[in-house]
Write a protein that binds this DNA or RNA. Structure first.
Lengths: 183, 183, 183, 183
DNA sequence: GATGAATGAGTTTTCATTCAT
DNA sequence: AATGAATGAAAACTCATTCAT
């Protein structure tokens, strides 16, 4: 049957994620990714016409994951435990996990540092995320006037903690932070 | 007497900041900085033995500024208006101002993406900043049990909003966020 | 029975001509031709062992066409109208028509720019063409001492106008040029 | 004092001409030129930001030469010998000389095969050349009605002979062609 | 016959760094 | 102090060609 293109592209993106997690987008060359795959650079170009294309595809996949994760959380928000508990689980997931977080930031870096297409894509998505978070918080905390503000704070806190985590700052007080944000 | 080395280095760092603000650290070459200065690359190397050295020096200066800014704020926290008002002024300063914020993030990016020396430097500094913020909040809000958590949240929020601002997300609710964090 | 190899090769050459007319030989890749055909590169290689082979075959076919065209003209030269009129028709055909001319030049370019086999082929053919043109002019103008020179001039003018046309120079005075060459 | 940039650029262009004469523009890589110079590729880029830039500069210089050559001829046309003789000298110069002719054609090839900027440049210049040739012929042959046509024919003949010469066709009858065109 | 996948050698380009003057 | 010139290593990218199925 032969490996489908989709399968190969997935393999490539997975390898890319592995390398990028180590070195960041800017310092990752296609040669790096090819080596990680045990594949020639030429083959990479068979699947992706350019590095930007690869990064863009990676971003799309990443955004899809993140959105799903948030939606999952919102779904859970309906029927589970206490608000604090739920938020704590989420933060834990985002910040302790090894895969998503770093990649999220590295892609963001690329977007900020000149990749205009990526930037627009993230900008659009950030709008959606804020909206979803707002709805989640509403279910969690009931309709309060400050739900919108809390959503903005929550989003900023997540991004900030992610950033600080990559710097190496130990994200202390995850539980307490959850409590603070939901009280 | 000639211009002192310190003066020249300052000129270089200022030019570097200007370029980096536009393009980010990763996309800024020494040639860019030299051109911004109207100086030759050779001369740059007379003052800085390598690009890393330059970036490191820039970071040191930047860290000094940031620390001063936070200390200033803490100083003000003693005798001025309401806590919310004070925090609002700070956030405004950090997020609306054009200079510090972006550079802060770009340096952070570099630190995260492989520049180990820088990363350690930031890690160390983030510890100090958190401590200072904690003290500032204490003066502002009185001794409460959750001051340490609030400091962590405040720091994360600042970093997060900075990041989102660079993506282009409009930092809504700055006033409301200040209120939320100080109530 | 399946499509005969000859048919397939013809389809390929036609597609090649279409692409080459747009981009020139040097800038035409096998991938371009394959895409124009809606065929895979692999299949191209089933019919042609190499790009040179394809180009060579294309050249042979092209030379055959050109020779036929010239012979046609010579045949007409016997029984038709005035010499000027006849020449004018020919020039018009060669220069206004879209297909042959550009391809002729592009193949010539390739021959000149390193494709030794092609160069020799063209060299040989140019000799024949000059001979045929000489005979045609003889029939048209009667036996004069300068028929050989006129043939050389005619050939050069055609090549020159073709070249200039591709540059975009509008081939003014086609009628007047015909008159000048036949008077 | 150091070698001036102008001197180095001239050295580079001369080397480029040497290589291009052998292989044509399309088949000449910057590595080829660098090797011909005994210089690193990096240095080439110190003087020319891209291959196109180099080729463009080469074209400008080439156009300047050609224009001067034509002007020279026109100047001579005033006071010298017979028209045939003068034209013969010119054709000889253009076609026997080793440098200009081939380069002219190769640059033209590049212009035709996709380099739009070059094409426009040549288009503009061909207009000027035709005009100058027209004036030269006027001085040579007196004011006749067909001077404009002769200029067009002369230009096409030169381009055509050049092309055919590169193919290897021996440019026979240069003297006779001169006579034919001036009678 | 036909194809998708893979490759490797070569091309253009970038850039931190060195160095003679 | 200052500079222009030079370099080499590595990056992104292209493309003719091969081959298993």
């Amino acid at each position: 049957m032969g490996k489908s293109a989709k399968y190969s592209k997935d393999r490539i993106l997975n390898a890319a994620v592995r390398v990028i997690r180590r070195k960041g987008v800017a310092n990752t060359s296609l040669a790096d990714i090819a080596k990680e795959l045990g594949m020639s650079k030429g083959t990479l170009y068979y699947y992706y016409a350019s590095k930007s294309d690869l990064i863009f595809d990676l971003t799309e996949r990443h955004i899809r994951y993140i959105t799903e994760e948030i939606l999952d959380w919102v779904a859970k928000a309906k029927d589970e435990a206490s608000p604090q508990e739920i938020l704590h689980v989420v933060l834990n997931l985002l910040l302790r996990g090894n895969t998503r977080g770093p990649v999220h930031l590295y892609l963001l870096q690329d977007a900020i540092g000149g990749n205009e297409i990526l930037r627009r894509r993230f900008l659009q998505e950030y709008g959606r995320w804020r909206q979803i978070l707002r709805e989640g918080l509403e279910q969690l905390l009931g309709e309060r006037g400050d739900v919108e503000v809390r959503a903005a704070v929550l989003m900023a806190v997540i991004d900030g903690l992610l950033l600080e985590k990559l710097v190496g700052v130990r994200p202390l007080f995850l539980r307490e932070i959850s409590e603070f944000l939901t009280r």
